[in-house]
Design a protein around this nucleic acid. Structure first.
Length: 392
DNA sequence: TCTGGGGTCCTCATCCTT
DNA sequence: TCTGAAGGATGAGGACCC
């Protein structure tokens, strides 16, 4: 491989394990009558999008991120399900536990995929490819789910290899093969190159990773900015020294909702804002964190999106603090542009584990945080709908 | 054709402090 | 006291991923 010397890659054997059409397969475990039929999971309302489609539905052109309305036109005979995220989380935990039997260093990246550092395990399990097959067999035997595994000297190469392993297979790319393996592939196959960067590269007549790797630096930097240009060009050569480590803590928590029809009535927006603030607040307290600020997200009918954020006077985790801040931001934003709103979101940012402090300003015997915790307890015992603010 | 929800990271502009 | 540079904090938006 040309480019920079990469000594650390030489010793590494990274597995990227990905469950095929995970949501669909998990639903099929629950309801075997779905086996063999086209199944589409995602938002089933007028503004929903597809989260996952079974391979039977994909034959009709249905794919993830497609508007459900379009999917229904392409494949009206498919079974459309909203999805059961509690089920997926439960299955995902079992999946990760199986992987942990094979490596102490397992890094989950989402419910259905994880990286494993398998460096030096050959003596324990034998040939790398055989180990991958053992893992796939264990996942199938214990959970009934098909898994694909990409193997490479880095997370990046393993991840791209997985696409060649699907469905239900194994694909390995060794260090010395990485650059030639990448070269003929379309730029969009590289994680980190999305529709926008792809279009920018197309304007420079760059369509493959080989062309990107060999592209002159000047025009590339002008088009993408120096940092991003250098980053994607290194990765196009298969260079990735990123260590395998788990993300420690969340940096933000958010909740958002898209209305079935655009909304401009203040009272309705306030009601939804309150409910979103509660959802975010509940999750914030559950994680034992406090936030330094809050932000709102507004998407208008023409799909233009704005965000507005504000820092709290002091870090906090109470529903009222989140709502009051979000409400101020909403009122200010609506004064500037009063158009009907398609999507409303609330998030808290700057999360940290600050110990609860008694603020000098806090004169109330029952603080916002205390009230919110009391509400959490009631919701936990009697359900999320059991109690709410009067306005909601 | 019509685009969800929950995240992360990056860039750029502006403001404030030193 | 004024001015400008540097750097951090904050705010806004874009791009991307699953």
């Amino acid at each position: 491989m040309s480019g920079e010397p990469n000594t650390s890659d030489k010793e590494r054997v990274i597995f990227h394990v990905d469950l095929d059409a995970f949501y669909v397969e998990a639903e099929r475990q629950n309801d075997p009558s779905l086996i063999g039929k086209p199944v589409v999971i995602g938002g089933i309302g007028p503004r929903g999008v597809v989260a996952t489609a079974s391979y039977e539905a994909r034959k009709f052109g249905v794919h993830s991120a497609m508007a459900t309305a379009v999917a229904r036109r392409l494949c009206p005979q498919a079974i459309y399900l909203r999805g059961n995220h509690d089920l997926y989380r439960t299955v995902s935990k079992k999946f990760m536990n199986i992987l942990r039997e094979y490596s102490p260093n397992v890094v989950p990246v989402s419910v259905d995929e994880a990286y494993l550092d398998m460096t030096g395990t050959e003596r324990l399990y034998g040939e790398t490819i055989d180990t991958a097959d053992q893992i796939r067999k264990a996942v199938r035997d214990q959970l009934g789910l098909p898994a694909s595994i990409g193997i490479g000297p880095s997370k990046l190469v393993a991840k791209v290899s997985t696409e060649h392993a699907k469905p239900d297979g194994v694909f390995q790319v060794r260090l010395q093969e990485a650059e030639s393996f990448f070269a003929p592939q379309p730029v969009r196959n590289l994680p980190g190159i999305g529709p926008k960067t792809g279009a920018t590269l197309a304007k420079l007549e760059i369509s493959t990773l080989g062309q990107l790797a060999a592209a002159p630096v000047g025009p590339l930097r002008r088009a993408l900015g120096p940092n991003h240009a250098d980053y994607v060009q290194r990765r196009a050569k298969g260079i990735d020294n990123a260590p395998l480590k788990e993300r420690v803590k969340a940096k933000s928590i958010s909740a958002e909702t898209t209305f079935e029809t655009d909304v401009s009535r203040h009272s309705e927006l306030e009601k939804v804002l309150k409910s979103l603030s509660e959802r975010v607040g509940t999750r914030l307290r559950k994680s034992g964190l406090r936030a330094r600020g809050a932000s709102i997200k507004l998407r208008y009918g023409d799909f233009s999106t704005i965000t507005r954020q504000r820092t709290f006077v002091a870090p906090g985790d109470g529903d009222q603090l989140i709502y009051d801040t979000a409400h101020t931001l909403l009122v200010t934003a609506m004064r500037a542009r009063g158009d009907a709103i398609r999507l409303l979101g609330v998030s808290v940012t700057g999360l940290g584990e600050q110990a609860a402090q008694l603020s000098l300003l806090d004169q109330n015997p029952m603080s916002d945080s205390d009230t919110s915790e009391a509400l959490d307890t009631i919701r936990e015992r009697f359900g999320s709908e059991a109690i709410s603010w009067g306005s909601v």
